[in-house]
């Protein structure tokens, strides 16, 4: 184990570089991924290291970019598309949801689409409603897409390598606020993969199970730390891939804790985390619950601009803390 503390942007760049070195058919395309180094600095110096033939700066044309990636993927290449903000996947949704997601199934397996679409999502930057959405459920609700939501640099690296290997379209949702901060754990050197579809038990406790995605894993971690000093011990589970979703560790944990709190950044209405609740409700472990399942999610509103409004729109550490305390205290 190395002790390299990378940021998530660095870890993703490293994974892309490894894939570039391993396979000549891997390339990156997107707006400002070249000389600019990516709007969030993720591609960084890759343009200088790999050249304009493999790091393709594109015009502002999301539908065209993703469509070109789909076509190239059908034809032997392994494109990584960067969409500058996940909000602009809306422009490309035909190619994502109607084309990439369905081609393998619809064409009887004749073709497949080994494409990764990486895109930053989430609030907290003051960029307002069209630049701050958490769109996990948009993609998780489309059969034929795999959806990855890394919460830390080490996972991002291993999961991205698996995503690039995968013969299917993978949507890789990166939280902007995580790009510039190092994770709690070092990022291993080398090219080790983390398989898609395996949830991670981040820490184990006996009083409460928290399932959270993306940046909410980090917020929940803070709460776990704080409450552990008060004698409340919490199991924290990060699904990492929200489609396919691995519920087994959640069932096993709830069998021990009897309490479940689920947390997501996006709006509560029809959110991804509701799938976790639904699967729990239909499982044998439902009987292990001694408390109603508690859900914390964003408000059912577009993300507002002013900092005090933006904060109110999505769960904060204090909200998770209050919820966790309440469920453990009130249900014994």
């Amino acid at each position: 184990m190395s002790d390299r503390m990378l940021t998530m942007a660095e870890a993703i760049r490293e994974a892309m570089s490894i894939a570039f070195d391993e396979r000549p058919e891997v390339f990156l395309l997107g707006e400002d991924v070249g000389i600019y180094g990516g709007a969030f600095g993720v591609s960084g110096d890759m343009y200088h290291r790999y050249g304009a033939e493999r790091v393709l700066d594109t015009p502002i044309a999301e539908l065209g970019i993703v469509g070109a990636a789909v076509g190239a993927a059908l034809s032997g290449m392994r494109p990584i598309v960067e969409i500058q903000f996940s909000d602009f996947t809306a422009q490309a949704m035909d190619q994502i949801a109607n084309q990439a997601a369905k081609i393998h199934f619809m064409l009887g397996g004749a073709l497949h689409v080994p494409m990764v679409l990486r895109t930053p999502q989430g609030s907290g930057t003051g960029a307002a409603a069209q630049h701050s959405q958490n769109l996990e459920p948009w993609f998780a609700s489309v059969p034929g897409l795999k959806v990855v939501v890394p919460s830390n640099p080490a996972d991002a690296k291993g999961l991205l390598l698996s995503s690039i290997d995968d013969p299917n379209p993978v949507i890789f949702l990166e939280h902007k606020l995580l790009y510039k901060i190092p994770g709690r754990e070092p990022v291993p050197e080398g090219s080790e993969r983390i398989p898609l579809g395996v949830s991670k038990v981040v820490r184990e406790g006996k009083d409460l199970t928290i399932v959270a995605t993306g940046i909410m894993v980090n917020k929940a971690w803070e709460v776990c730390e704080k409450l552990s000093t008060e004698g409340i011990s919490i199991t924290l589970i990060d699904p990492r891939t929200i489609s396919p979703l691995d519920m087994q560790p959640v069932y096993e944990s709830v069998d021990k804790t009897g309490r479940l709190l689920v947390v997501q950044e996006g709006p509560a209405q029809a959110g991804f985390i509701n799938e976790v609740i639904a699967q729990m409700a239909g499982s044998a472990s439902f009987g292990s619950l001694i408390a109603p399942i508690m859900r914390l999610a964003g408000m059912n509103i577009p993300i507002p601009y002013a900092p005090q409004l933006e904060k109110a729109a999505v769960p904060q550490i204090e909200d998770i803390e209050i919820a966790a305390r309440e469920i453990v205290k009130n249900w014994r």
Partner: peptide, 30 residues
């Protein structure tokens, strides 16, 4: 981010609109 702002602080720089002067709004989407 003030209450008296054109969007009540909800839109910010990229979403200012002013119906009285016929401005249907800035836009975050190119």
């Amino acid at each position: 981010g003030k209450e008296i702002g054109y969007c009540g602080g909800r839109g910010g720089s990229m979403h200012i609109a002013d119906v009285e002067t016929g401005n249907l709004g800035a836009n975050g989407v190119v």
